[in-house]
Amino acid sequence: MKRVILEIESNRALTPLVYEMRLTGDTSEITRAGSFVEISLDGLFLRRPISVCDFDEGRLTLVYKVVGKGTEQMAALKAGTRLDVLTGLGNGFDSAQCSQHALLVGGGVGVPPLYRLTRDLVAQGKRVSVVLGFNTQQEIFYAEEFERAGANVIIATADGSTGIKGFVTDAIRESDIDFDYFYSCGPLPMLKALCEATDRPGEVSLEERMGCGFGICMGCSIQTASGAKRVCKEGPVFKKEDVIW
């Protein structure tokens, strides 16, 4: 964990509620896809945890959905604003677990952390199939970015306005993808349905309301098959077999 000051380079709406914020500064502590940062915001007591969408030396991209006061405030921030950020939080995905063909499944605002993971897996010479689930066409974001990163992208929308009509599990069944390992982030019912639908191994990123974000307050503890774990510290990514649904 490192506390750094990052400067907003751009902050734009991708959909009516989803924003992409690009920041510059010291990102040395951010090393894995699926990890997160915590942002201090004016007038709010606790920092806001936001998953890392992408990073490079000196650059960080966050994609977040406006769901409350914190993210509302973030959406209004202008380029040039400097933010107090804790970086390098959480464990992240283990890209080495996949041997040849990875299935990445994202639901709504669970999509962003899979972007960096796609880049990592492609760089390792692995095949990447990405299934992205949204409610409707207007909510779709980053589909082209995933394609440009080298993934085979399949879209599912609940209302059928784009791609396959239905949930991500419907899209996976219809597409008959021959993956050896899966990675997923999204709403809990989606993660559960996915884990039940496949006999392949994989890992999922869980969400929990956090206090500190770095393991000292026990605010985000969950029971797992291997005992009590902190979503912020031992997680947010857990192996499929560890999750108690």
Binding site: L44, F45, L46, K69, E208, R209, G219, C220, S221, I222
Partner: peptide, 9 residues
């Protein structure tokens, strides 16, 4: 969980 709630200050 949830075990945490934000409040003013």
């Amino acid at each position: 969980t949830p075990r945490i709630a934000e409040c003013s200050s």
